[in-house]
Amino acid sequence: MTLALREGRTTLRNLHQVSPLRALFPTPERDEALTLALVNTGGGLAGGDHLRIMIEAEVGARATISAPAAEKIYRSLGPPSRIDCALQLGAGAVMEWIPQETILFDGARLQRRISADLAAGARLLAAETLVFGRAARGEAFTRGALRDSWRIRRDGVLVWADGVAVDPPRALGNRFGFAGAESLATLLFCGDEAPAMQALLREAGAQVTLPTRGLVVARWLGAARDVRRGLGSAIGLVRAAVFGLPARLPRLWTA
């Protein structure tokens, strides 16, 4: 999918989509950027399913990409469920990649790769939440595997690489691993305002760090509800301070 700036407004330039993934464009609320809702009409991913997402925001485009529901990863009988997500931001483009939680059912096997390439002056706010087992049902993630990798490039240079590998899930109970937490959320902001965002998020009580110039990372680990609340308020702070968007989550998250 390509989003382009035309006469001061971000519009869809081209879109190629294959079931079960659908892109919807709900009418943005006032003050919101072009909002894109990714919907998995299959309801979730089974073992062997593979989603590929490529979104390009051209020079100066602004877009918020989210989802109206959590992504569910079902128990796999063997092969992994795969998600490959590539985000490209042209010069001065602004993108929010803020889907809701990814819920790993017990026995799920997820292999996810997220990459973002930012040209000069582009800014990205990305947030991802993993939930281990269906917390509301008291289900834990005791079998299965997770491989989650992130690669961020600025001006063609790899600036941040990270990954989570939970395979098998024994580290979830380790007090120096996940300490029994139901959920892990990661917020990443890439752009020249990163140091100011670190100060802002730290002031708000978030666990935050600046691993490299121009990139701030915050993490939440704990009960799914607390993680969602912490991440949600942090997203609001960053989008308001940097993008001039409302200091709250898009309605997709709360409707």
């Binding site: 990954g163 691993g177 937490a181």
Partner: peptide
């Protein structure tokens, strides 16, 4: 390509 950690608590202590 699939390298990863499973130690967010240690990252949080470092932060």
């Amino acid at each position: 390509d699939d390298l990863g950690t499973a130690s967010p608590m240690i990252d949080l202590f470092s932060m």
